[in-house]
Design a protein around this nucleic acid. Structure first.
Lengths: 192, 192
DNA sequence: AAAAACAAACTGAAGTTTCAGTCACGTTAG
DNA sequence: CTAACGTGACTGAAACTTCAGTTTGTTTTT
């Protein structure tokens, strides 16, 4: 098993997904990680330190699983790579749900906690960049700027749709359909 | 001045926008509304009752200010009515920022609080319906279903972009530009 | 028209619970 | 040996909720 620090972070991600940042109790985190509260303060300065570290942990993990799954798949046309990558965020698996929920929570928390903003922005920029590159792979003729704008819209839409999915407003399937159409719409526009 | 119950709700919206749902303290709410803590429990059963009532209050108010501002404006082409309506959510005014922030907070909270979901879904459905109608006004030939799907994408995008705006990721101007292009993209697709 | 009864709105301090953070004291690996 | 790792009971402040009682306004009685 991973070292205790990692165990704590995994537990934090799980708990944030289940109860939200607002509902994260240090004592409960200790129980979930099967660890003492003292150890948590040994590894992380304070509650907000836990959150910051968890954000980093989650975005690392998200980056890893998207990269993995895309690499795993048979070499496909650029377009379906783009679609698959965006759709990875809409799956009924524990890890995706966990990551998405926690991500949404941290995004929401960042509105009131400056210390979270920097990390969130970096992660968002990286994500936008990845999507922009995938778009460029589909339409090499398109200059970078419009592609990046499309990427911003698509990733923002992922977040918006995730919010609705996770708060019970729509099903994963509906979210996937809406997302696919959005890709279609954006590419058609860029191709013009 | 409005009755005390309303005063409390206005104060709650202000405070949620300033400190977040998690940061809402009943005592602070009492102070902000210039009211005793007891009165809050007199009008709302408990803390979560405050949140539920505030959600309702906010979505009513949002409905009102969009309707008002659109009605106020000189009769315009349907297309710009649609654009204006969506852009109303991206303004650097106190009330819009307040509504958007509080809305985002409540959406996030709904992921973990079932009692908030119903209200949120209703409000979302109404909003989608309004946008779908505006789309139909621009393109009367388009059947309702695709128009509603476009509306869903556009409102989800509003939420996604709002999240980024309010957590400092992008400026209002950037959000507005991205939004306008999204309208363009969606309409172009529907017109096909 | 004055008094009495009643109800709704409201107060603020006290009771209770919850929770982040600490500390004195083990345990283990190098 | 010792430094890093780890424990869990404890603390104090802060927060939610309750409640006994006051004020204000309305209705009924005499």
């Amino acid at each position: 098993m991973a070292d205790r620090r990692t165990v704590i972070l995994e537990a934090a991600a799980r708990l944030i997904a289940r109860r939200g940042v607002r509902g994260l109790r240090v004592e409960e985190l200790a129980a979930e990680a099967a660890v003492s509260t003292g150890l948590i303060y040994y590894h992380f300065k304070d509650r907000s330190g836990i959150l910051r570290a968890t954000l980093e942990f989650i975005s690392d993990r998200a980056g890893r699983y998207t990269a993995d799954q895309v690499a795993e798949a048979a070499p496909a046309e650029p377009r379906s790579v783009l679609e698959e990558t965006l759709l990875l965020e809409f799956q009924e698996t524990e890890m995706v749900r966990e990551n998405s929920t926690a991500w949404g929570e941290l995004r929401a928390s960042a509105m009131f906690d400056d210390t979270l903003r920097a990390g969130l922005e970096d992660a968002t920029r990286v994500w936008n960049g990845e999507i922009a590159e995938l778009i460029a792979a589909v339409l090499p003729a398109v200059p970078g700027d419009p592609a990046y704008a499309s990427a911003q819209r698509l990733t923002a839409l992922v977040e918006g749709l995730s919010g609705r999915w996770l708060s019970g407003g729509i099903t994963v399937e509906a979210a996937r359909d809406l997302m696919l159409d959005a890709v279609d719409v954006e590419l058609a526009r860029l191709a013009r």
